[in-house]
Design a protein around this nucleic acid. Sequence first.
DNA 1: CCTTGACCTCAAGCTGACTTGAAGTTGTAC
DNA 2: GTACAACTTCAAGTCAGCTTGAGGTCAAGG
Lengths: 138, 138
Amino acid sequence: MDISEVVRQSGVPASTLRYYEEKGLIASVGRSGLKRLFAPRVVDQLALIALGRAAGFSLDEIGEMFDADGEPTIDRQALAAKADELELTIRRLSAMRDGLRHAANCPAPRHLECDRFRRLMTVASAHAKTAKAKRGKP
Amino acid sequence: MDISEVVRQSGVPASTLRYYEEKGLIASVGRSGLKRLFAPRVVDQLALIALGRAAGFSLDEIGEMFDADGEPTIDRQALAAKADELELTIRRLSAMRDGLRHAANCPAPRHLECDRFRRLMTVASAHAKTAKAKRGKP
DNA sequence: CCTTGACCTCAAGCTGACTTGAAGTTGTAC
DNA sequence: GTACAACTTCAAGTCAGCTTGAGGTCAAGG
């Protein structure tokens, strides 16, 4: 497949594909003249990268989880840890979703003083601190 | 409360507080000399902002949802729409989480060729396209 | 009175994730 | 065989979301 075919199938712009290749997230299988040739599997990898991005992982993190062929490079434990990280994120987002739904229905004049709303938010402030602690470390 | 108290209680750096104020996301209740004074509620608002950020909303979006006092400024419908948006995100993240858990357990040599893994990923590529379409519009 | 330290402003800098633009190369169609 | 569209490289630009730094202000303690 040439690059335009990958663009067509994945919706990812060519510039991004070149960028990802440079970063080692994907690999081209060779060249035809100057032109990159990709294996069809790259489309799946791009979906995987999109998923990781949507999950809040940085390109570097994704690069550490999977090699340029899309296979996991970290051990089961690390993968499970990433899954747990995500689990936490999901719980926070669920809180936010519930908070929004609540705000859309609750007639309280000041939501910040509504107990239910406040309870839904405590989940987040807890996270803010852990995220901060994490950033301070590496 | 002075700014350092807000920092202490929220974990958000002073520079960020000033930045948020400038953006109109929070408001100080006045000054003592040059020094900003904040109402205690700002801590809750910061939690709300953190939650929104974690949910993938930009500061601008959050600013459109809530005023500087933390009260929703958009109508119930719009709030519900944001909640639905989040619901979708949550589903994608759940797919990623399941994908990671699966990869941590599945003994298949090439995960991209594992049907279950691939099925989990299709959710994401669908999103990548909608996100793209959305970005093209506003 | 003078120092100290917590605050202030404003401009500039930084990171991640791309995008854009200029200038060069090439396989294919006519 | 030449024109052309589709690629290529590489450097620079963009945007969000902050952070950093220089230089200034002020209240309190010694």
